[in-house]
Each structure stands twice: as C-alpha cells, then as structure tokens.
Design a binder for these strands. Structure first.
Lengths: 117, 117
DNA sequence: CATACGTTTAACGCGTTCGTTAAGTGAGGG
DNA sequence: CCCTCACTTAACGAACGCGTTAAACGTATG
C-alpha cells in the first residue's frame, strides 16, 4: 500500500461502480454515510469502507459534526486524472489544430487559478 | 469477472502504473511485446498479462504479423473515461464564466467530429 | 447514567490481481 | 526437419479487494 502512487489510487478508486455512484451523489450535495448508503445495495460497513478508499485517494474529505460524518467531494484528483487522460486527447480530437493550443491555454489558466491558495 | 462493466474495466486498467507506461509508449507508435517489455522492470509473461488486461478493456487492439504481435492504442475507452470525469469539470473550472461555454462548444465540436463514422 | 443512534473497526471468506519460473505454441530460418 | 525466436499459458504464492456479520466507539437524548 505504501508504494502506491496518487494517480493509481485515484483510478483504482474510480474503478468501482459503487464509488462512482457515491461521487455522483456527492456532486449534488454533501451527504452523511446513512444518506449515501440509502440507495446502495449493500451494508453500511461496506459503504464506510468505500468512503475510506475515496478519502485515501483524496477524492473526498470528511468532517464530523456531532454524531454525523459528512462527506464532501474533492475534485483535485479528478483534475489530475483528467489531465493524464488528456495527453491522449489528440488521438480522438480530430479538430486538433484549432483546439489544441486553446485547450493548453485553458489548462494553464485553470492551473494558475486553482493554485492560488 | 462477468459482471464488470466497461468503464470499471477501463479505470481498473488505468490504475496500474505499468499499464499506463505501456499506453504512453503506444501513444508514440505501435509496438511488439518485446519492445514494450524492454523498459519495464518485469518478466515478459508479466507484460503479456498486462497487455491482456488492456486488450480486455479495449484500450489496445492486437494483430499478429508473422511471429510478432503488435499492439495498437485504441482511444475510445479513454474518451469514455474522460467523458465520465468531465461531468465534474464544472467543480474545478473556476474560470467557468469565460471558459465553460467555450469548452462546451469544443466538446460538442469534438463529439460531432468523432461521431461521423 | 443508560440507552439509542450514526458510524467505524474487527474478523472472516472468497475471488482476483500481480509477480515469479517453467512449459507450451506457432511461425521462420539454417 | 529441427531449432530458435516471439510470445502465451500454466502453476504457484503472496497480497489485495469487496462483501458479510458482530462488536466497539463516540456523541446525543430520555
């Protein structure tokens, strides 16, 4: 577990449909474990472990408020994953000529935007 | 193994650094198993199995030419993965106002481009 | 303070993954 | 023909992933 890089952890986390469903749900609003468990066809401990995996991949953060633990979507790892895949975009982006430079500029802009904190 | 959906297979395949390295190499040119094995710190059977995983995820296709088997990058699954992640793009695209419409247009353009086949 | 609630941790089982080495296949070359 | 080259398959072992149920934990609430 020690030698696993961040990107691998992210893709590995995304490989499970249950975890993708959880991220979809968190995209709408923050939620407690019970709320996240409700639509899922498995026990709460199972969901709890999925959340642990997502947290380890930094795809979510969690805060305890009283007796509830609310999960919050963190998008930085998703951006990393998208960035990795984007290196192949030229293969299916046939209109590359007019878009490539622009996408690069976009990425750069976003990068500088998100990094000021 | 039977119930695994396509997107899960793709993310699962991408979760391994070795397989990502193979895809990187294939992005430059098609290659034989020996060529792909050369830079990798493992035996050829191990690489062969990684290729099998990538083929199963439809990330590569393979053809046998005489005694060589050349692997070729297939980008459709990468596009699917990128599309899935893109649903979260609005969360980190902070400069959304000036870029969102543009990216949407870009995506639409790409979509129509790639779909004419 | 005892009890319930929300959640996590522990223990277990099972199937899969990832590496190894050794043996098998199949197309060319001497 | 036989041997070699390129690659795959088989067999094995250690580690991991994903689910279960049962027990523990921590924070309200009666």
């Amino acid at each position: 577990m020690a030698g696993t890089d961040q990107l691998s952890a992210v893709f590995s986390a995304l490989a499970d449909p249950t975890r993708r469903a959880i991220l979809d749900q968190l995209a709408e609003r923050d939620a407690t474990v019970t709320e996240l468990s409700a639509p899922l066809p498995m026990s709460m401990p199972a969901v709890s472990r999925h959340l642990k995996v997502l947290e380890h991949a930094a795809l979510i953060s969690r805060t305890r408020s009283g007796k509830w633990r609310t999960s919050h979507l963190e998008t930085a790892p998703l951006r990393d994953a998208a960035d990795w895949i984007d290196r192949f975009r030229r293969f299916w982006d046939s209109s590359l000529d007019r878009l490539d430079a622009h996408l690069a500029a976009v990425q750069a802009a976003v990068r500088t935007d998100t990094k000021e904190h």
